[in-house]
Design a protein around this nucleic acid. Sequence first.
DNA 1: CCGAATTGTTTTAAGCCTAAAATGTTTTCC
DNA 2: GGAAAACATTTTAGGCTTAAAACAATTCGG
Lengths: 163, 163
Amino acid sequence: MLDSETKAVETPEDHAEELRLWLRLLTCTTLIEGEVRGRLRQRFDVTLPRFDLMAQLDKAPDGMTLSDVSKRMMVSNGNVTGLVERLVESGHLDRRTSETDRRVQVIRLTKLGRAEFRRMAAEHETWIADLFADLSPKDVRELMRLLAKTKASAQKSAARRRP
Amino acid sequence: MLDSETKAVETPEDHAEELRLWLRLLTCTTLIEGEVRGRLRQRFDVTLPRFDLMAQLDKAPDGMTLSDVSKRMMVSNGNVTGLVERLVESGHLDRRTSETDRRVQVIRLTKLGRAEFRRMAAEHETWIADLFADLSPKDVRELMRLLAKTKASAQKSAARRRP
DNA sequence: CCGAATTGTTTTAAGCCTAAAATGTTTTCC
DNA sequence: GGAAAACATTTTAGGCTTAAAACAATTCGG
């Protein structure tokens, strides 16, 4: 007891396991993300960020503000500005200034945007299912639980640094 | 039995759980990655891709070829070219053409590069530990196991598409 | 009411990233 | 030996991404 405490204080802590876990988490995400990116490009000639943005809007029939999107997608504001610009240009998004607050831009999927997204999303879902095919329902539940815990832990840590 | 089979064939399969799992995985990675990126920038004024590349090289005292790096980091060849260019420029990397195969470029950390990386890596490890702090050792083991299974599943799925 | 802080968005500058084509080198195999 | 295939890297063109600064509109507190 005294020994282990002494040791913990005197020697630098060993966090190799957590480091390995992080690298494995990153590998999984990169692998799946790359696969999805490639399939979206080949099948639908669309980029992953565009798809992701449309996915957010599909869940919000009344539209979202740019900051909403930025927070949900966890990307910078400026990033959203450019992404939206291109999607409005291609006719997938409708963008208007809020009537009540002239700072705010509200964006929505157009009819075309929604139709195209739904078509892509249906296929996208089967890709994801296939990528996770070797996980049992129990594995999936367990991963969900552990990742929820991970997310909470990371958010807490981030909040500690930037309160 | 017949019922469930009939149902499976006639109605589109439901993969909502896998989709949620994928989104949660992505959220965790994005969250942690963003946190690490910010800390690297603030503490050491270095970008995450530069750090990642140096991490690969630190594990390979005899150097690596650009393709090795590209495969390990799971990024495109052209990406590595640019990244290496900047790191050679800043004196962190040494780059030379292989004596036995003039197609190949071998890169290594310079003395400066290694020293700076070690300094950053030590602190980096504590950040990761902190981000995963609320996970018990058992959680970590279990996550490692499930992510290994996930990685294998995704690789298999990717190989099915692109054999 | 009015100046100060806050909020929402855009701009800027730099770097990251990809896919595909191009270039140069080595290996394969007839 | 020499053409063809394979390999390693670079180039190209375009898009994504960030952090920080700038701009615009609203809200807050005295």
